[in-house]
Design a protein around this nucleic acid. Sequence first.
DNA 1: TGTACATCAGTGAACGCGCGTTCACTGATGTAC
DNA 2: TGTACATCAGTGAACGCGCGTTCACTGATGTAC
Lengths: 188, 188
Amino acid sequence: MRYSADHKAQTHERIVKEASARFRRDGIGATGLQPLMKALGLTHGGFYAHFKSKDELVETALRAATEELTEVCEKAFAKPQPLQSFIDTYLSPAHRDSPEKGCPLPTMAAELGQRGQPSPITDQGVEDRLARIAATLKAEDADEQAVVMLSTLVGALMLSRSVEDPQLSLRILDSARKALKLQADAAG
Amino acid sequence: MRYSADHKAQTHERIVKEASARFRRDGIGATGLQPLMKALGLTHGGFYAHFKSKDELVETALRAATEELTEVCEKAFAKPQPLQSFIDTYLSPAHRDSPEKGCPLPTMAAELGQRGQPSPITDQGVEDRLARIAATLKAEDADEQAVVMLSTLVGALMLSRSVEDPQLSLRILDSARKALKLQADAAG
DNA sequence: TGTACATCAGTGAACGCGCGTTCACTGATGTAC
DNA sequence: TGTACATCAGTGAACGCGCGTTCACTGATGTAC
């Protein structure tokens, strides 16, 4: 059946959105195209009217997730205490408990590194975030401090998600949040 | 065929060793039992003479990797400047380039968090490392600082592995190493 | 304005493949006599 | 010491399953006349 002018573009976007959520929540390898299309009320065969392969979807969905996160970051950075707000948001239990809506780095970076050739979009995401953080720092080693901050953010969020003990999980978030905000105060 | 008394124990250990390397290098989901057994010169059917399931192997191999890393850490901590040595080793290009011999956290934590129920062994590994770091710090907030240091170590190593640009990868390792050593100096 | 036709997003069966797991079996060795 | 037997680590074919991908097809809609 033929659909209205922008129907295909809408379906395309729905696939990308659902994929970017599932890749972040379940991982790339554990996300099947069949269940994904079924969740959208479509059959799996139609997938190839939109993408050449799963790899192409991975690229597109990773780019979408990266851009989506940039927008979320900008909201935090628009507040009075930009870096403090960003740190609070990033290391919140809400972010920890909703990986499908959050930063793709803690969930996908390891898997992307293990795949044959890593994607330049990871670099893009890392550089985006580094530039944004460094821009708010007044210290002369702002670039280096930004790298350390991002590493701590990504590492703490991933660790808080992977431990079983809820108290340990919270302790990781709280300690990292506290230390980073002190560092941000000193360098900002 | 029947083998000498400790033959089975030796095979068991060979499987665990090979699995703990592959899980760290390729991830759990991407590691097949068939290729794993073949690499050891065995057929896949024999696997179930040693383990109830792949999940049981994951538990055993993760425990082995965690214990193996503890030994490597102890070597670094036995040197004159314990924490400095540990940081240097952890954030070295050698560690980045040999995930199969290194810390399981940057490679497996995300995947373990995504699986149904996370393993208590992850908690064990995190607590082990935290305790070791905190013990070398004299600051009163040693426990909190240890959490931040571990987060930075794990995050920086994972990021350095997942970016495509070799210069960015090195920059991440170098910045994190420098900052952590300063922090260790101040708190140690 | 009304009708015939071309388009093409989506359908659903089928493909080969590798996965984790099962199972009847083999055959070299340790043990019992 | 020599022989018959029990053991059981490892074999390899087979299982059902879900994966990514292909492809002949459908049928509602936009377009041409």
